[in-house]
Simulated assay, not measured.
Amino acid sequence: MSELHDLRRGEARGRGAVSNAVSRFEPYARVAVDDGWEAPVEGMLRTEVAVEAPRKVISRNTSPDVPFDRSVNPYRGCEHGCVYCFARPGHAWLGLSPGQDFESRLVARPTAPQVLAEELRKRHYRPATLAIGTYTDPYQPIEKEHEIMRRLLGVLQDFRHPVSIVTKGTLIERDIDILAAMAKDNLATVGISVTTLDPKVSRLMEPRVPSPARRLQVIERLAAAGVPVRIMASPLVPALTDHELEGILQAGRDAGARAATSLMLRLPAEVAPLFQEWLHVHFPDRAERVLNRVRELHGGKLYEADFGTRMTGQGVWAQQMQARLRIARKRLGLADRLPPLRCDLFRPPPRVGDQLSLF
């Protein structure tokens, strides 16, 4: 893609972000200028995929806000294009824009399954639930071609290692055979994110994500196969989708979900200006109302990264939302979390040439 195309593409059909501003690490800003030599490029923005060969794939964290300490990311960037995605700032580390680059210039890690297997074989490794999909979606459209996620699941199944997956993608249905077999031994759970039941809002906010109704169908099919599923009403956008909380949980329960969670909108780093821009383009009548409520949740700022409140917000309105969540879960018979997965079954499979035990 030429730099001129990059500068002039502006709002593109089928993409979440409406611009492609440079990241916070770039020393210079790029400004589109029409010099009369080339007409502005409009319309579709094609997806480009680069390949990365990682030396390790298990990422560790010590955050008290999340229930896992390790995760794996098959891809960098996400074609789903959710405008609110908190992973967007990560593209800045690649020298790319957290805007349209994040959803169109992707990085695949095809050797991730082999690297994961080597990490799991290390003598000091101790198993705990591995989270996948907590950063970018492992079942975004390019997974159909690359099949990295399916091969990762194959490794985890061979090692009898517990895994928890979060996705909005229907491609997870392809892997129900592996997930059902692992779930039988309490080694797999899935979280399906449904941000709104309104297909029009969904199409604007997360343009390449399957429709809400289709995601509910995924819950049905996973549940029917015996895979424990939680419905995730996340993120809730104040004054835009927050009124749907109870409806989303009801729909998830009816589809077969056993547990329910919900998180408030987060706007770290470059996500804040991107989301503001998107709001003023698509919902100008309520943009300031949404932003004011977000500020109310974060002490007058669009984002506050304090542990304990960054996921839920603070103040009276945040407390009301948490109360609504608790009441809805109780009424619907939904748990606040799925049962813990087993770690005692973990066994590295023998390799060709390994000395096998006689007993």
Rank of each mutant, 00 (worst) to 15 (best):
M44H: 02
E270W: 03
L153M: 07
R215T: 12
T136F: 12
R221F: 04
E42I: 03
R331P: 08
I172Q: 09
Q322G: 07
I165E: 14
E3A: 08
A328H: 12
P349H: 06
Q140G: 13
P284V: 04
R46G: 08
L187S: 01
T134G: 14
G95T: 01
R230H: 12
P64T: 07
K168W: 12
R46A: 11
Q250A: 10
F283E: 14
Q114T: 02
R258C: 00
D185K: 03
D35F: 13
G191T: 07
L197I: 12
D177H: 07
S59V: 10
I327D: 13
P40Q: 12
R174K: 12
V294M: 04
I192R: 02
R70W: 00
L356N: 00
S63P: 02
P212F: 07
P64Y: 09
R342S: 10
K122A: 14
A131Y: 11
F159K: 00
L96Y: 01
G154A: 04
G95H: 00
Q114M: 05
D158T: 05
E304S: 15
D198K: 00
V51S: 09
R88T: 10
H161E: 12
Q157S: 09
A12L: 04
I219P: 08
V115H: 00
P141K: 13
C343H: 08
T241E: 08
N73L: 15
W278T: 10
Y125H: 02
I327P: 05
P340Y: 10
E145Q: 09
A92M: 06
L120N: 02
L96K: 01
E270I: 07
R126G: 05
A181T: 07
P350R: 09
